[in-house]
Nucleic acid binder design. Structure first.
Length: 297
DNA sequence: CGAATAACAAACTCCCGCGACCAT
DNA sequence: ATGGTCGCGGGAGTTTGTTATTCG
């Protein structure tokens, strides 16, 4: 709860849920369509003049980033139009439609552009309308101490992730009783230790980055198949051209990466040979100091 | 010794299947 | 009931950045 000098009080309705999350709250942020917040922001307000007209504005994000360029703070009006204090105080004020996106050009009015790995705090602004006119100098801001989060594109803290699955019914498929986990494809399948490698058809178009001599600059330095280590467990799947064979090979970190059109064609021709053992950090024990944008409030 | 680059690391994006929700 | 859509975490590939090693 937070109250202002004028006596207005703003309370977080689902504080119990917010408080369940031990450690810094993380919110997934995605690019194309944005990601909804969970838990949502839902407030109650008290102490308004019941008959005065108020406009309720939310999500004026404080930005404390030091490293990255600071983007303009974004404000989103609540879906409801201006209404009396009594109506505002009557029901919960929810911002469940808010979506977080990494796309700075997001057009949907519910999408809020935020930077990943930065710490964000929602701010509620209440403006009282005088004679139906909104005075920009008039407004009170409310920050709930416990309501802030780190934007991530992938959960860093497994505890946070587990609590999201446990509490968000839309993620129920990932609970122990759900089927998502039971149907995971087998992981860690190594490619067969064969000396021959699938290659695209000779009609494959040369990639645009190819040199005039017909080879990738880097790949040209590694023409021998002995350099190909298919037992390695890397995240990079890269392709290299053997200039002696004038064909594409699939390997680990062996020179310039195949361009997208060529790789798509390659994948279509070799759909079953893509399994590999993927490296992952098994102990994702990353503390709050990890975040680039963390700052003190 | 310094530049080049191999090796390593991790953030990020797209898309997927499942379960909840929603409109018939 | 049923079929369409949405939202979820996750798989797998892409992109980007850092460190270690090699080479001239």
């Amino acid at each position: 709860m937070m109250s202002s000098s004028s006596g207005i009080e703003v309370t977080l309705n689902n504080a119990d849920l917010w408080n369940k999350f031990n450690g810094p709250m993380e919110m997934l942020v995605t690019r194309k369509t944005g990601r909804k917040m969970f838990p949502i922001l839902e407030y109650s307000v008290h102490g308004l003049n019941p008959t005065a007209i108020y406009r309720y504005r939310n999500n004026e994000w404080d930005d404390y980033a030091k490293g990255d360029p600071i983007t303009p703070i974004q404000k989103n009006k609540h879906n409801s139009e201006a209404q009396t204090g009594m109506l505002w105080m009557n029901g919960p004020i929810s911002f469940k439609q808010i979506r977080l996106t990494t796309d700075p050009k997001a057009e949907d009015k519910d999408n809020i552009f935020i930077q990943s790995l930065h710490k964000w705090r929602p701010v509620v602004t209440i403006r009282k309308l005088e004679n139906e006119v909104e005075n920009s100098n008039f407004g009170e801001e409310f920050r709930i101490d416990t309501v802030w989060f780190i934007a991530v594109t992938k959960y860093q803290n497994p505890s946070i992730k587990g609590l999201k699955v446990e509490n968000n019914k839309m993620a129920s498929g990932f609970r122990p009783t759900g089927n998502h986990k039971n149907n995971l494809p087998k992981r860690g399948t190594k490619r067969p230790a064969s000396g021959t490698f699938p290659s695209p058809l000779s009609s494959t178009s040369p990639p645009s980055k190819m040199n005039s001599n017909g080879h990738f600059p880097n790949a040209y330095h590694y023409p021998n198949q002995e350099n190909f280590d298919y037992s390695m467990t890397g995240t990079a799947h890269q392709y290299w051209m053997n200039p002696n064979q004038n064909m594409w090979n699939y390997g680990y970190n062996m020179g310039q990466q195949m361009t997208q059109p060529v790789m798509n064609q390659w994948n279509m021709q070799n759909p079953t040979n893509m399994n590999y053992e993927q490296y992952r950090n098994p102990n994702n024990t990353i503390g709050p100091e990890y975040y680039y944008g963390l700052n003190n409030f």
